[in-house]
Simulated scan of single mutants.
Amino acid sequence: MSFPEPGLVVRYDYLWTHEAARGQDQGKDRLACLVAASDSMLRPRYVVLLPITPTPPADDKKVRS
């Protein structure tokens, strides 16, 4: 069975850190991008998904170059 290619956009039940800190145990469906997946023969198989959001990060969370 082949796995989708990196770059695929999927819906994912994503829980932000601040939501978990408030005690939430379920997020909402959000768009996420498949970034990488480990070899299909490895167990457990690892998949990296990054959330996609139109909201810019708060000032204290800005990425610094």
Rank of each mutant, 00 (worst) to 15 (best):
M1I: 11
M1R: 12
M1Y: 10
M1H: 10
M1G: 12
S2D: 13
F3C: 05
P4H: 01
P4T: 03
E5I: 02
P6M: 02
P6H: 03
G7Y: 01
L8A: 06
L8W: 00
L8Y: 00
V9A: 05
V9M: 03
V10P: 01
V10N: 03
V10L: 13
V10E: 06
V10C: 10
V10H: 03
V10A: 06
R11K: 15
R11T: 15
R11Q: 15
R11N: 15
R11P: 09
R11Y: 14
Y14G: 10
Y14T: 05
L15M: 06
L15W: 04
W16T: 04
T17W: 09
H18Q: 10
E19N: 03
A20P: 01
A20I: 08
A21R: 13
A21K: 14
R22T: 05
R22H: 08
R22Y: 06
G23V: 01
Q24E: 14
Q24P: 01
D25Y: 02
D25I: 06
D25L: 05
D25F: 02
Q26Y: 00
Q26F: 03
Q26L: 08
G27C: 00
G27Y: 01
K28A: 08
K28G: 08
D29Q: 12
R30W: 08
R30M: 13
L31I: 01
L31M: 12
A32K: 04
A32D: 01
A32N: 02
C33Q: 15
L34H: 02
V35P: 00
V35M: 14
A36M: 04
S38G: 15
S38C: 05
D39K: 07
D39C: 09
S40V: 15
M41H: 14
M41Y: 10
M41V: 08
M41F: 11
M41K: 14
R43I: 08
R43A: 11
R43F: 07
R43D: 09
P44L: 01
P44T: 01
P44N: 02
R45E: 00
R45M: 12
Y46N: 09
Y46I: 10
Y46A: 11
V47S: 03
V48M: 12
V48Y: 08
V48R: 13
L49W: 00
L49M: 03
L50Q: 14
L50H: 14
I52A: 05
I52M: 10
I52G: 07
T53R: 04
T53C: 08
T53S: 15
T53M: 06
T53D: 14
T55N: 09
T55G: 05
P56C: 11
P56Q: 11
P56A: 12
P56I: 08
P56V: 09
P57T: 07
A58Q: 12
A58D: 12
D59T: 06
D60F: 09
K61S: 13
K61D: 15
K62A: 02
V63T: 09
V63F: 04
R64N: 10
R64S: 12
R64A: 09
